[in-house]
Amino acid sequence: MEDIPCCQRTLYSYVDKQYLSVINLDLPRKVRYKKRKKKQLDTPVPRYRKNRTYRDLLDFLASSPDSSIVELDVVEGAGGKSGPVLLTLFFRNCSLIRYILPS
């Protein structure tokens, strides 16, 4: 290893890409260890439209007043993600607010 001026990880990458005439059986650590699995994210990535503001919503409502829009909000309790959660639905066309406490 002292003769090659690169780190061990780079050397293993070169072997995987077949830049060298070495195979995985020639590398004792490579054969002995199983490849690690990638962990899944605990929380999903938030999906929302970037660069949208409340002013954009008001402009849309002014241009099409007959559209039916429902606004959803999530209110988390004091315990954070593990505490109680309250969902609020605001129906704009009839000014109705509905609260849902999921079980």
Rank of each mutant, 00 (worst) to 15 (best):
T53F: 05
P5D: 08
G77M: 00
K39Y: 05
L61M: 11
G79R: 05
N93K: 13
S67R: 11
Y99K: 11
V45Y: 04
R9A: 14
D56S: 09
G79D: 04
L41G: 04
Y33W: 08
R52T: 15
G83V: 04
D42L: 13
N51V: 07
D3S: 15
I97Y: 11
Y54I: 15
L41Q: 11
P44A: 01
V74S: 10
P102I: 00
F60V: 07
R29I: 03
N24K: 15
R47P: 00
R36T: 07
A62S: 12
G83A: 15
L57E: 05
V85H: 02
E2G: 14
K37Q: 10
R9D: 06
S13A: 14
D73T: 04
P84G: 11
Y99R: 09
V45C: 08
R49V: 14
D16N: 14
G77R: 01
K38W: 03
L27Q: 02
P44I: 00
R47Y: 06
R98K: 15
K34N: 14
R52E: 13
S21L: 08
Y14F: 14
P102N: 03
M1C: 10
L61Q: 06
K39W: 03
I23Q: 08
G79Q: 05
L89D: 04
R55Y: 03
V15N: 01
V75C: 11
K38P: 01
P28T: 06
S95A: 11
Q18N: 14
F90S: 08
C94M: 09
L101P: 01
L87Y: 14
R49H: 11
V31G: 01
S64L: 09
K17E: 10
V15W: 00
L61R: 09
L57I: 15
Q40Y: 06
L58P: 03
V22T: 09
P84I: 01
M1E: 12
I4F: 05
I100C: 02
K37S: 11
V31M: 07
K35R: 12
V15F: 00
P46Y: 02
Y12T: 08
Y99M: 10
L25H: 13
P46C: 02
D42W: 05
G79V: 01
Q40G: 11
G80Q: 00
S21C: 05
K38C: 06
K50S: 04
D42H: 09
C94T: 13
S68A: 11
C94K: 11
S95E: 12
S68L: 08
L27T: 02
R36I: 08
Q40F: 09
G83Y: 01
F91C: 14
V74F: 12
V85K: 05
N93C: 07
V75F: 03
P84M: 06
G83P: 00
Y12W: 15
N24L: 07
L41V: 04
